[in-house]
Simulated assay, not measured.
Amino acid sequence: MNDGPPALLTLSVIGVGYLGAVHAAAMAELGHRVIGLDVDQARIDALSEGQSPLHEPGFDELLRRNVDSGRLTFTIDYAELADADVHFLALGTPQRDDGLGADLTYIHSALDALAPILEARDGKPTLIAGKSTVPVGTARELHARITSIDGVALAWNPEFLREGFAVDDTLRPDRLVYGVADTSDGEAEIALLDAVYQQILDLNTPRRVYNFESAELVKVSANSFLATRISFINAISELCDVTGADVNDVAEAIGMDDRIGPKFLRAGIGFGGGCPPPRTSAV
């Protein structure tokens, strides 16, 4: 944890969909200068005017406040990211059309576009921080692509957002996870992320530093475990239908066991959204 006032940085957030837009506005709320980038001109225009493209409690006010303050701007031009100390990758990684793997096209395209900007910084410390949910091994692959660029480092910093609570989960997370190439030699990456999150760390938020693979798998495992709980109680619900039992009674009783807990034990139509379905098949 750092002492004294927070070090305010210039950050970029590449990809301003659900994850990226919330992250960009939240980082501006912490006082940083933030530039959000996307290839969708209509989305950039709307965000630049403080108009939210998503429905998330508290986000509309957060967006407008920080756009109005001038701390938060949006662009489609990578050249405007030249002064950023940290580049957050918040791009989509949808399921591939030809199989169960994750499509990493957007991640690699962003790195291609960033490369000349990073090279032009002439060794000034710069961090690329991955927020996207990716298969294990992705960060190591991206790291290999940037090792020839002096002064540039990579970390993986997974998000753990819940729909309906994304703003709070960004500003008051229950943990911060940093993935670095080598946990014994990641001081620069850790220092930059600590500077980004100093106000959050000052709230005694747990911070864990792992290698790339562990950080990637933390996110994938969390999604898979929650999906497993939902699938489990739905399977029990089918058994209840056959036997005459009440799944709500069963879920209530097993949830009283502190080894199990009551969360995500509601029988229903299953799990969905933009994250769990593709992630459970693209580990």
Rank of each mutant, 00 (worst) to 15 (best):
G50K: 01
L176I: 14
H32M: 07
V152R: 00
L154V: 10
E49R: 15
N2L: 14
V209A: 02
T73Q: 10
Y18H: 13
F165C: 14
G272N: 03
R65G: 14
T73V: 12
H23A: 15
A110E: 03
S231M: 07
V250F: 09
Y106G: 01
G137T: 10
D77E: 12
A25Q: 02
R229P: 03
D85C: 05
V177Q: 03
F88I: 07
D85L: 07
V136A: 14
G123T: 05
G268I: 10
Q95N: 07
T243Q: 05
S52R: 06
D103A: 12
V220Y: 14
R96G: 14
T170L: 12
F88Q: 02
V34K: 02
I44L: 05
E238Q: 14
R207M: 11
L89A: 11
M256C: 09
G123D: 06
G17C: 08
G4L: 05
D77G: 05
E159A: 10
F264L: 12
T75Q: 02
F271A: 06
A166K: 08
Q198H: 11
A251H: 01
G268H: 09
H23Y: 14
F225R: 02
D202P: 03
D182M: 00
G17D: 08
I200Y: 05
A253Q: 11
P125L: 03
L100D: 15
Y210G: 00
V242P: 00
T205N: 09
L265H: 03
A253R: 12
D83S: 03
K263G: 06
D202G: 14
R121L: 00
